[in-house]
Amino acid sequence: MKKITVFVFILAVAFANAQKDDNTSDKLTFVKGTQFINLNLSLNSSTSDLDAQTQTQESKNFGFSINPSYAYAISDDFFLGIGLGYTTNSRENDLNGVMDSEVSTNSFSVFPYVRYYKGVGKKLAFFVQGETQYTRSKSEVNNTNARTTNTFFFGVRPGLVLMLNKNLGLETSIGALGYTTSNLEDEANNSEVDFNSFNFSLNSTNLLFGLSYYF
C-alpha cells in the first residue's frame, strides 16, 4: 500500500510538471542512438509474533533484489534492451525462542525487452515495455528438500520516467499484463508440476522503482 501511495504521489508531481512544460516547450523525446543504463533495487524486512498460552511463535522475513539493464534507441523513442536480475528471500520461524524452520529462495533472471516512449511534457514521458523474462529459482527448507522452478513470462508493463536533469531519470512502473508458464521440480518427493496463467496484476509486487542514466 505504501508503494502504491508513493507511486500516486510521483504521478501527481509528474503531471504537474507536464502541465507547466506544455506551455513552454516541446514534449520529451529520446532521439535515435540514445542509450540508457537502468538500476532497480528493492529491500524488504518484516517480523511477526504470535503469543499463545503454551507457545510463542516469531517469523522473520528478509528480501532483496537487484535488476540492472541496458537499452539502445534504434529509432526515436523506441529502444531495444536487455536486463538481468537477482532476488533472494529468507524466512525464519522460531518456536519458543528456538529456530523451528528456515526457508530460503534465490532467483536469477534475464529479460530482453522493447520499450516505446510517449512524451507528455518537457521532463515527463510515459512508456510501454514489452518483455520476455526467464527466471530460475531454487527454494530450500532447512537447507534440504530443494525445489527448482523455471518460469517464463511474456507480457507488457506500463510506466513513466521523470527526468531530473539532462541525463538522470526517475523511473517507475506498476502492473503487468501477460502470460506466465512455470515448471516446478520437487526433489523431496521426485515430482514435477506445471503451471500456466494469463493475468493482469496491479499489486505492489509488480511495482518497480529505479534510476536511469541516459547518454
Rank of each mutant, 00 (worst) to 15 (best):
K2I: 12
T5Q: 11
T5D: 15
F7H: 05
V8M: 13
I10N: 08
A12K: 02
N17L: 14
A18N: 06
K20F: 12
D21T: 11
D21P: 05
D22L: 15
D22K: 14
N23P: 02
N23I: 12
T24P: 04
S25G: 14
K27D: 14
K27F: 06
T29L: 07
V31W: 11
T34L: 05
F36P: 04
N38A: 10
L41R: 03
L43P: 08
S45N: 09
S46Y: 08
S46V: 09
D49L: 07
L50E: 14
D51C: 07
Q53E: 14
S59L: 14
F62T: 06
F62M: 08
G63V: 09
G63D: 01
F64A: 08
S69Q: 05
S69P: 01
A71R: 03
A71Y: 06
Y72L: 07
D76T: 14
D77Y: 13
F78V: 11
F78R: 08
G81Q: 01
L84F: 15
L84M: 11
G85A: 03
S90Q: 09
L95N: 10
L95Q: 10
L95R: 09
L95I: 12
N96P: 00
G97H: 03
G97K: 06
M99P: 05
S101C: 06
S101T: 13
S101L: 05
E102N: 13
S104D: 12
S109Q: 00
V110P: 02
Y113I: 02
V114R: 05
Y117I: 01
K118L: 11
K118V: 12
G121Q: 01
K122A: 12
L124Q: 04
A125S: 10
F127P: 00
F127V: 02
V128E: 06
G130L: 08
G130W: 07
E131K: 10
Y134D: 01
T135K: 05
R136P: 00
R136D: 09
R136M: 09
K138Q: 14
K138C: 05
S139V: 01
E140F: 01
T151P: 02
F152C: 00
F154E: 05
P158W: 00
G159N: 01
V161T: 13
L164R: 01
E171K: 09
E185D: 13
E185M: 05
A188V: 06
S191T: 13
E192Y: 11
V193I: 15
F200C: 02
F200E: 02
N203D: 15
T205V: 13
N206W: 07
N206H: 13
L207R: 01
L208M: 08
S212P: 01
S212R: 07
S212G: 09
Y214T: 03
F215P: 07
